[in-house]
Amino acid sequence: MPSSNEQPTAPLSSGAPSAVTVLGLGPMGRALADAFLAAGIRTTVWNRTPGKDRELVTRGALSAAAAEEAVAAAELIVVCVVNYDAVDAVLRRDAVTEALKGRTVVNLTADTPARAREAADWADRHGIRYLDGAIMTPTTTIGTPDAVFLHSGPRELYEQHLPVLEALGGTHTHLGTEISRAAAHDIALLDIFWTAMAGYAHALAVARAEGISGRELAPFAKGIAAILPPIFEETAAEMDDGTFSGEGNPLTSAASTMTHIVHASEEHGIDAGVMRAAEGWARRTIGLGHGTEGFTRIAEVLGRH
């Protein structure tokens, strides 16, 4: 969603020192600022709670007393706070909004796709260039080849600031001009992660109730994880193509195993709410006549309105 108010800007000259401002100094914000400093980039930092910039200042960061002062220090403003409510609390104060005009905000804060679209509309109305982004790896990867960043928004704006953003390490992928695509990828991928972690936590509880330690279960759990990548590829193709083959493992069989998990859990007094929900999706899909099809048919049913 390119901004209608987007102004042409000159790219960073290779001979001029680059500069960046980082707003938000939680664990991830500090990691971002640290990576910029390590790359020799003039870095100004600001945080709502004072004191979090001390170590960064000893490494050469410039500490701003106010957010508007931090914004005025660079053309590129990287924001990383807890959510978009916190972003709004920082950026939508009159003095900060005024200082942001004509500058570029790269918002690496996690929130929903709808909030990303709303933020971009606000930026457009105030003459602020805007890119949305997502960080898909933990703080320990920032500044290393293992970091993964997703970006969306105007392509020319992304390419203009990529030389500075690359100081953060890893891979940077531009997902398209639709501003919410980074946030949408982030939500979908975090859905996989936290659902999987919830399943693993539940499995550890059930295993422990049956006298199996976490260390005993872990090697076999890793085996389950190892079969998932090809399954992800196959089921993604099924979803895109509208084919939901149940050959070898129809949905009726999957629902049966879910029932076993529910019963075994509840025999030990372990909450089986997550598995009951999954079983409910499966039973609903079977009830619609898809029992002989594959598990991914559930995704298609969930997406129906």
Rank of each mutant, 00 (worst) to 15 (best):
E293G: 08
L62K: 05
L228M: 15
P27V: 10
D111Q: 07
E75Y: 09
H174D: 05
E118P: 01
G143I: 00
D111G: 06
A203W: 07
D94T: 07
R297H: 03
A39Q: 03
D146M: 00
I179G: 04
G199V: 06
R103I: 09
E6Q: 15
T296M: 14
H268M: 04
T177S: 14
R30M: 14
L25G: 03
N107I: 02
L56R: 06
L108V: 01
V90P: 04
T144L: 11
V57P: 03
E166Y: 00
V57Q: 13
A299C: 12
S13D: 15
R103W: 05
G102P: 11
H268S: 03
L162R: 15
S253K: 12
N249H: 12
L190R: 06
E156S: 13
E300R: 13
R48N: 11
T21W: 02
G153I: 08
T177H: 03
H174V: 07
Y158I: 00
E68V: 09
F232R: 00
E166G: 04
R283F: 03
V106Q: 07
H172D: 06
T21N: 01
A66V: 07
A184H: 06
H305C: 05
L189E: 03
A183V: 06
L302W: 03
E267D: 13
A237V: 14
M197I: 14
T243W: 02
A225G: 07
L131V: 10
R276S: 13
D111K: 01
D186M: 11
L189Q: 04
E210W: 00
S265M: 13
A225K: 02
I212K: 08
L62M: 09
T243A: 13
P50T: 08
T296Q: 12
A99H: 04
T104D: 05
S180D: 15
D146A: 14
A264R: 15
A64G: 12
L190C: 09
T235V: 12
L228Q: 05
W46H: 12
A73N: 13
E210P: 00
V20T: 02
S152Y: 07
L131F: 10
R42V: 04
A237R: 15
P154T: 13
G169F: 01
P250T: 05
A116N: 05
A221V: 12
